[in-house]
Design a protein around this nucleic acid. Structure first.
Lengths: 341, 341
DNA sequence: ATGAAAGCGCTAACAC
DNA sequence: GTGTTAGCGCTTTCAT
């Protein structure tokens, strides 16, 4: 079967043209005759010819491949972003290579080495270890353009940061306006930026409204896949329990909903709920869940725009870009309501 | 930066050896002196040398890459399988390239073309269109070994099929033994094998127990992401509603749980529930949900074993393999109980 | 154990 | 518009 693989040489011979003409005909260059194109294409089709990507990228110095490094693809939030991004890049003729690192440092470094060896054209990365020296140094020496997603690395580079502060503030504003004075937060206590920022932003927003900030209204499981069940049960069983909660839309959310159901509480009658991130598994929830989410279409657009800017010739050492990307607060109306009292 | 990329030539020059020796030293051949190896490695490190994968695979005719084609990676079941598979293959030095096709025929064909162009070493595929002629023909002419996952294609090839019949039968047996006489099924009405087989197996198993098979106990939403909420509400509001249900562990499951909670039913007191597939979002559910699942570790093992068998020299036209892969019924005890009456 | 040289399949530069 | 040729970076002969 390896020997059965046809090369462009075979195509050229069958079409009765030179190797160069065959290449031009196949790649849609402008200086080829209609006739040549037709004959070459017919020859290629009849031979089931498929260009050899290794040879092509060795010569052209482009792999037409973009690498993505996330912590975990089964995180429903990332899975959705990746899907959108893949579609967007495919339209541009790029393949997306993704890698899960499970937040492990050695896997992050190994992944970047791999991406380098494979000569990927550009990268989109969200490393877990923002202050690790070795990782930062490696990233700094990356030979291709790259974009950092919602991480504050030591190295100065193109970065898109989610505006957690403004996003969370919007939600807290909304709940406070409805009359809620006791607001809870349920989110993984991550060391990386999203975790840090979310918690800090929540505290700041609650204080800004002159509400008292009780640690008892904070449920911070270790990871996004941890169960928040027991702690949420405890939090919502208190006499002065929060009347509204903001919940990270991962495994944390499903265990929270589980706890709410178990306590016989109704959304929004007994408790208002807002999800951070629009997880697939609550997409059809009844009632619809208000969500603080990122517009993945727009984000993909933004990411590709930045990447292609660097990929083009306009890469002449423009200063690193730092962009704050907004959240969208999608009030579905039915998951939040004024507190009863 | 492109010009900054070091080649093996640079390494050889700095180490003071020939290009060939440098290659041998780096690839750990046996006919190199310790001294050479040391000097070459030092040179490589100081130059931050990274081998060029395109050149390597052009020459060696191996990309060390395995392609996976699934319908949808945000399907929690597939996401988990992919993660396991990726880890397993990485340990063998292979990179995994995945592609979502969203069950679209043109994307499936485009993906296979892409995989061919990139010269992937082997493929794992689960096409949606099992009887499409063009697709089958394309697959038949694939130049690399491939393995078909739970699909009955026209083309005869290595195939691993999930044993839906035995799996579903096990669950129905369990429920029948507990005394359930009215058992429901909630699963996407897919055209592809998993959908077809699940529904057929359910009907057969119910009949085998002499139970009456009521269409009213079948909820078959269009896709795995569809909401089953309204239909489950309807099904469980009937006087003679099922006392136990088997539910596909995707978006279908979350909307079903949503409906159960809304009706104020308790698991397992009011209704027994078994999930098909162990979705992340119910991993920590209270009570634990009994699950009919595939052992992804074992499956990954099986898949890699098959693939490497074909990849090795033992590929001499052994007849296509057809393997029935078992489900594991994990009774968590607490989500199923005898019906009350 | 080492160096020299061929060549993987392709694109791009150069002649005409 | 077309043919010829060089060479991308590497592995793998073949001499020595």
């Amino acid at each position: 079967m390896a020997s059965g693989r046809r090369t462009i040489k075979d195509v050229a011979r069958l079409a009765g043209v030179s190797l160069g003409s065959a290449s031009r005909a196949l790649s849609g260059a402008n200086n080829v005759s209609e006739d040549t194109i037709a004959r070459v294409q017919r020859a290629a089709a009849s031979l089931r010819y498929r260009p050899n990507h290794a040879a092509r990228s060795l010569r052209s110095r482009s792999t037409k491949t973009i690498g993505c490094m996330f912590s975990d693809l089964s995180n429903p939030l990332y899975a959705r972003l990746f899907g959108t991004l893949e579609d967007r890049l495919a339209r541009e003729g790029y393949v997306t290579l993704i890698s899960n690192t499970s937040n492990q440092l050695d896997r992050e470094i190994r992944t970047l080495k791999l991406f380098t060896e494979r000569g990927l054209d550009a990268l989109i990365i969200a490393p877990a270890h923002e202050r690790n020296r070795e990782l930062n140094e490696f990233i700094e020496h990356l030979p291709m353009p790259y974009l950092i997603l919602d991480r504050e690395m030591l190295v100065k580079a193109d970065t898109i940061l989610f505006d957690h502060a403004a996003g969370i503030a919007q939600v807290v504003d909304h709940l406070a306006e409805l009359g809620h004075t006791r607001i809870g937060l349920v989110t993984a206590n991550l060391k990386s930026r999203p975790g840090r920022r979310r918690i800090a932003a929540f505290k700041a927003a609650v204080r800004a409204h002159g509400l008292k900030l009780s640690d008892e209204n904070l449920v911070l499981p270790e990871s996004s896949m941890s169960s928040a069940y027991d702690d949420v049960i405890k939090m919502l069983s208190r006499k002065d329990r929060p009347t509204s909660i903001i919940v990270q839309g991962t495994g944390v959310l499903s265990s929270t909903m589980n706890a709410i159901a178990r306590l016989g509480l109704r959304i929004p009658d007994d408790i208002s709920l807002v999800s951070i991130g629009r997880a697939d598994f609550i997409l059809n929830h009844v009632p619809a869940i208000s969500t603080l989410r990122v517009d993945y279409e727009k984000l993909s657009e933004e990411i590709t725009a930045r990447l292609f800017e660097r990929l083009g010739n306009g890469n002449g050492r423009k200063p690193p870009l730092r962009r704050l990307f907004p959240y969208v607060f999608e009030v579905r109306g039915s998951s939040t309501a004024p507190p009863r009292e």
